[in-house]
Design a protein around this nucleic acid. Structure first.
Length: 1130
RNA sequence: GGGGGAGUAGCUCAAUCGGUUAGAGCUGCGGGCUUAUAUCCCGCCGGUUCCAGGUUCGAGUCCUGGCUCCCCUACCA
């Protein structure tokens, strides 16, 4: 350390400027005022890798108090998007923050690896359109491709995350890709990878299954052996308690994916859709010439019609239309009937019960069989769910095609049959429909019904309809067997009235008790989760697919017994055949399918059901599987429960949060995490979801390389988590502007410290002996560090960034603005105090922003500290959180006073504006009345005001002055309750000055006496010009301009013009010059010496400039002059 | 249908226990400061705080009803 490093991102011009004088040791390296943040980020990534900075951070904190973050797995199925970067910014910044607090952490990233997400993409890549394609292709091969896809994108996302600056225990992406490629050759070949404590050798298949395990390290992968195995244990535990069951039901079904969807999955995919709204006439068997009118939006289900349902108490009418007579609900007459009609008769729904009618497809063999077997005919049934808002008030019931229909069918004892197979095609037995795609037949069905006299009316109907959340296919409802975990009874009584026994008997209430022990950010998360738990149905865990958790359910067709195997070892012991096929394989299909166990009921060999598991099982087990619940219980108990989890909340209350809560409650009946932080959704800048074809989408890589990840991270950290964030280039520009202010303060410091040859080794007065302004900014740094720490401990990065922005603003626009001259034009203790203070403030700031801006802060710190101090940590991320060190510098009274001085200066500018006096024009006097409050450091503050307001004298005036009146500010929060209705009169009197202030501080006003602490006596301006006031602060300026003041103003104007010209001539900051001034009034000359000194003039000529020099006219109060300059000695 | 959240300047958002003159930023206009700045400062323009009632001395804030949007949830053929 200590040797300035190369800075290849620095523009050549900046490097040329690096002339250093008076160097007594290592010096800051030069800094560009126009940094290339992106190049800098890449350089720092290389440095961190070379210096193993992250590894050293982990070592530094090892064994300390722990902070346990548990990563929610990202789906390793595609490159990561900018919305992932939002969440990963939070995850990284809180981990970095806690690392700076010295806390030990695991730093384990997670990848979600199993399930339909991956399958669908692999299918697409192979051009498959149905499950039959997969079966023909081979399940083993297909599953292998799925794993390879996961490895591909895990590597990709790892690279992208590293680019984001996300510090985690990452796998080497190249190693992941190597494993992927080895799988391609032969999964059973032996390979070696670098593990935590040395090389790990195994078959490629098993190495992949061991990723994330203690000996291998790196990210966890939910397809790992351990993850799958622990889920088996969880399911076996559920079974032990009798909660696992097989349900026979009509389920939402995706005909493309060939699988049922759980309730939570169905919720993902509701979308607007237009379906045929078909009204059908069903002739009544016992009432010739009359027909029921029923309405449906799913014509394909008519072939499975079993009954027509009416509301018991709804009013139905018989109407005549031409030669036809129809029955329908009275309330639907207008919407359902076309053309004129005559009402013949009215009857309640219950009168229709039992009426037999002719079904639309009674002649199909499947229907005849189903009806014949049950000895059933189509008839009208009662159902209390029937309404008359839509349709005809007579509901077509197909128990094999709808969940509600199914329930009704079961309770009414109707025949139940499903017409379609896994792919959504009609079974044999449905005549001309057999083999046709159910969603496609609407038109043919309509034609057919029309020909056969069943058709009444057709009109498109728009509604929200569930779609497959993965592939977007509209769902069908299909009669299937699926596996469930019972979530327990819902009691019809408030939670707080439940008995212990009731809670112990119902899992959902046990989960709620766990939810109560968790801190939710934002707080409404608690209510959302409880709400979900109250409303959720049993958890459907099966999926008729190929790649995923192999459900360890062994269901005996012979005797009907099923059992759940609790782990690979148990399976090995119980296996009666096929174990050798699973040996050496991860517990995936098809190998696991080969294993049979002896049926506990009848002893016959029984196979595993073919289904795979719901992927949220995979993610929900991670508080156990990734913390070595089984193989290292001591380790687990140290890290469980996690202190913190964080995820985008849309969906997760019923997905990841829920599955973790459910599994932890079953296994431990305790909370899996202590705090949960959720955030909303990322949209494009136009407020719409990012969409490639809308032109508002931004890829992560593009964002990283164009705006830089620090800028991105700053945007994310400062966003309101509960609101959707609008992400785009303009927002990035705004964020970058804020960071550039910070950068430029830093660049200023380095520039002038180099010119002065100042480094921390040069020394400076003790902090307590510095100017009030110095002590003020140090106090602000201390206060900011404490406040930022408090906010970050509460997972409030938004407030933290606001505090940091305010500090940056103070540092730039107040401290630096007022201190510039001390650094550029003074010397000795005055100068050194300024450098030391600014240096201290910048270093403190770098450490405070380090969790949010890891690159920018590192770059500053490397130069401000590491480059000049060999004893300091060489990375800002190893430097610890600064709040403790800064705390002694806090001086709140001084901060209050400075706020007042700033406001006074603002007011002076307001007054100047009104009076048309620019700030460069010095004024003789400024009168200042302060609020009645205690003000510390008065003299120093008046000095600040004098300098900034550019006045010769600041005179503090009290309320006895003729410039102001005494005013009374009634402190309403104190007196409001006491005075009540008298307030308006008191306030009016205060406004109009009708009051009397007594010597003891009490105030008589509008017949009331107010105590001294109920009012604030303030100055208020007397009417006049050049006065501005704000909350008891009054500023009055003397607008009289003497000839001397005018001349001095001219001198200042001239100085500015010379500086402009210097800049135009592109002179270095320390170039000395020769100056020409032509036409200058004699009165101004008196004030010239400081101007010449400030502008580094060696020789001044009064007269026409030397030929060939560029000149500039300057308008002065005393007349126009012309100036020119050149570098001295040039 | 049920539950929750929100509605404030053209846009994005503030506003402490209810406190009297509702503030910032962005945008626009005018002016100013400045060899750190791609900044910054002052001023102007911009408001029926969704609507209607109510409580209160006083309502953006609390209550009631309605409207709109978002989220969660739900068995509408």
């Amino acid at each position: 350390m200590g040797t300035p490093r190369s800075v290849d991102w620095l523009p050549a011009a900046a490097r040329r400027r690096s002339r250093v004088r008076d160097q007594r040791g290592p010096m800051f390296r030069p800094v560009s005022a126009r940094p290339d943040f992106v190049a800098q980020e890449h350089a720092l990534l290389r440095e961190w890798a070379e210096r193993k900075t992250f590894a050293r951070l982990r070592a530094q904190n090892a064994g300390n108090a722990r902070w346990s973050f548990l990563d929610g797995p990202i789906t390793a199925n595609n490159p990561m998007g900018v919305h992932h970067a939002w969440g990963r910014t939070y995850k990284d910044l809180y981990q970095r923050f806690h690392a700076m607090l010295g806390e030990d952490q695991r730093f384990q990233n997670g990848f979600d690896c199993q399930g339909l997400w991956v399958e669908v993409n692999v299918e697409k890549a192979l051009g498959f359109t149905s499950k039959r394609d997969i079966e023909a292709f081979g399940i083993a091969e297909f599953v292998r491709l799925c794993k390879q896809r996961v490895l591909t994108y895990a590597a990709r996302q790892t690279e992208q995350s590293i680019r984001l600056g996300y510090w985690m225990d990452w796998n080497d992406p190249a190693e992941l890709l190597r494993l992927r490629d080895l799988m391609d050759q032969d999964p059973q070949q032996t390979a070696t990878i670098q593990g935590v404590d040395g090389p790990v050798t195994d078959t490629v298949e098993m190495l992949v299954g061991r990723l994330g395990m203690p000996e291998v390290g790196g990210s966890y992968f939910t397809f790992s052996n351990e993850n799958n195995d622990l889920i088996w244990g969880f399911l076996a535990e559920c079974h032990r308690r009798g909660w696992v069951y097989r349900g026979h039901d009509t389920m939402p079904w995706c005909p493309r994916c060939g699988t049922g969807l759980s309730q939570m999955e169905m919720n993902e995919g509701y979308a607007d859709r237009e379906d045929p709204g078909l009204t059908v006439r069903l002739p009544l068997v016992d009432r010739p010439g009359e027909a029921l009118l029923v309405w449906t939006t799913t014509p394909w289900t008519l072939a499975a019609n079993v009954a027509a349902a009416v509301g018991e108490d709804l009013v139905y009418v018989k109407v005549r239309q031409g030669d036809d007579v129809y029955w329908l609900a009275k309330g639907t007459l207008r919407q359902a009937l076309r053309g004129p009609f005559t009402v013949l008769e009215e009857a309640p729904g219950r009168a229709l019960e039992g009426w037999r009618y002719t079904g639309p497809y009674d002649d199909l063999p499947a229907v005849r069989t189903a009806f014949g077997d049950a000895g059933y005919e189509h008839r009208v049934v009662l159902w209390d769910e029937v309404g008359d808002e839509e349709g005809t008030g007579i509901v077509h019931i197909a128990p094999g095609c709808g969940a509600e229909d199914y329930q009704l069918g079961k309770s009414a004892g109707l025949p139940i049959f499903g017409p379609i197979d896994e792919d959504g095609r009609y079974y044999e037995g449905f005549g001309w429909l057999a083999g046709k795609d159910a969603p496609e037949v609407a038109e043919e069905v309509v034609d057919d019904l029309e020909q056969r006299g069943f058709f009444y009316h057709l009109e498109p109907y728009a509604h929200r309809y569930p779609h497959c959340w993965r592939c977007g296919t509209p769902l069908l409802f299909r009669l299937v067997d699926e596996w469930y975990i019972s979530m327990g009874e819902v009691y019809d009584q408030p939670r707080e009235t439940l008995t212990r026994e009731q809670v112990d008997a119902s899992l959902r209430y046990q989960i709620m008790e766990v939810v109560d022990q968790i801190q939710w950010f934002p707080a409404f998360g608690h209510g959302r989760e409880i709400d979900w738990l109250l409303n959720m149905r049993d958890w459907m865990i099966s999926k008729k697919r190929y790649y995923g958790l192999a459900l360890p359910i062994f269901d005996c067709p012979a005797c009907g017994t099923f059992d759940v195997v609790g782990g690979r070892e148990e399976l090995r012991q119980r296996a009666v055949e096929g174990w050798e096929q699973l040996e050496g394989q991860t517990p995936h299909r098809p190998y696991v399918d080969a294993v049979k166990i002896a049926c506990p009921g009848c002893g016959r060999p029984v196979s595993r059901i073919a289904d795979v598991g719901n992927p949220w099982l995979d993610a929900g087990i991670v508080p156990f599987s990734t913390m070595h619940y089984r193989e290292d219980p001591e380790f687990w108990s140290r890290w469980f429960p996690a202190d913190f989890v964080s995820e985008s909340f849309p969906g997760q209350f019923r997905n990841w949060f829920y599955s973790m809560l459910a599994m932890s409650t079953v296994l431990r009946r305790e909370r899996p995490f202590k705090s949960l932080f959720g955030y909303a959704t990322l949209y494009g800048e136009d407020g719409r979801p990012m969409h490639k074809s809308w032109g508002n989408a931004i890829e992560f890589d593009e964002a990283a390389e164009r705006m830089g990840v620090d800028v991105m991270r700053w945007m994310y950290a400062s966003a309101r988590p509960e609101d959707n964030i609008l992400f785009g280039w303009h927002a990035a520009d705004e964020a970058r502007r804020g960071l550039l202010v910070l950068w430029n303060v830093y660049a200023f410091f380095v520039t002038y410290a180099r010119l002065a040859g100042w480094t921390p080794a040069s020394g400076a007065p003790a902090a307590a002996d510095r100017t009030p302004l110095d002590r003020w900014i140090l106090s602000r740094a201390a206060g900011t560090a404490a406040a930022v720490e408090a906010r970050l401990r509460e997972y409030d990065a938004e407030a933290a960034t606001r505090l940091l922005s305010a500090f940056i603003d103070d540092l730039s626009t107040w401290y630096l603005r007022l201190s510039r001259r001390r650094m550029s034009r003074s010397s000795g203790a005055e100068r050194d105090g300024a450098f030391a203070t600014l240096h201290q403030a910048l270093v403190a700031l770098a450490r405070m922003v380090a969790p949010i801006l890891p690159f920018l802060s590192e770059s500053m710190y490397a130069n401000l500290v590491a480059a000049v101090d060999a004893t300091a940590p060489d990375s800002v991320h190893l430097s610890g959180w600064p709040a403790g060190e800064l705390a002694p510098l806090r001086d709140e009274a001084l901060e209050d006073a400075m706020a007042l001085a700033r406001r006074a200066v603002d007011l002076s500018r307001t007054v100047r504006g009104q009076a048309g006096l620019k700030v460069r024009q010095p004024l003789a006097r400024l009168w200042l009345a302060l609020p009645g409050r205690e003000v510390g450091e008065l003299d120093a503050l008046l000095g600040v005001v004098r300098a900034e307001a550019n006045v010769k004298d600041v005179v503090q005036i009290g309320d006895e002055s003729e410039l102001v009146d005494r005013g009374v500010k009634v402190l309403l929060p104190r007196v409001g309750k006491r005075l009540g209705a008298k307030i308006p009169s008191v306030m009016a009197a205060a406004r109009e000055g009708r009051f009397e202030i007594h010597d003891d501080g009490t105030v008589a006003i509008a017949g009331e006496t107010l105590a001294a602490d109920e009012v604030e006596v303030q100055a208020t301006p007397r009417p006049g010009t050049a006065v501005a006031h704000d909350d008891g602060l009054v500023v009055v300026i003397d607008t009289t301009l003497t000839p001397e003041l005018r001349a001095e103003g001219d001198a200042r104007e001239l100085q500015r013009a010379v500086q402009d010209l210097r800049k135009e001539a592109e002179l270095e900051l320390d170039d000395r010059i020769e100056l020409w001034v032509d036409g200058l009034d004699a009165s101004v000359r008196t004030f010239l010496p400081p101007v010449l000194a400030d502008t580094l003039v060696d020789a001044a000529h009064f007269g026409a400039p030397a030929a060939g020099l560029p000149t500039a006219p300057v308008r002065l109060d005393s007349g126009e002059v012309v100036i020119a300059l050149r570098r001295a000695g040039a």
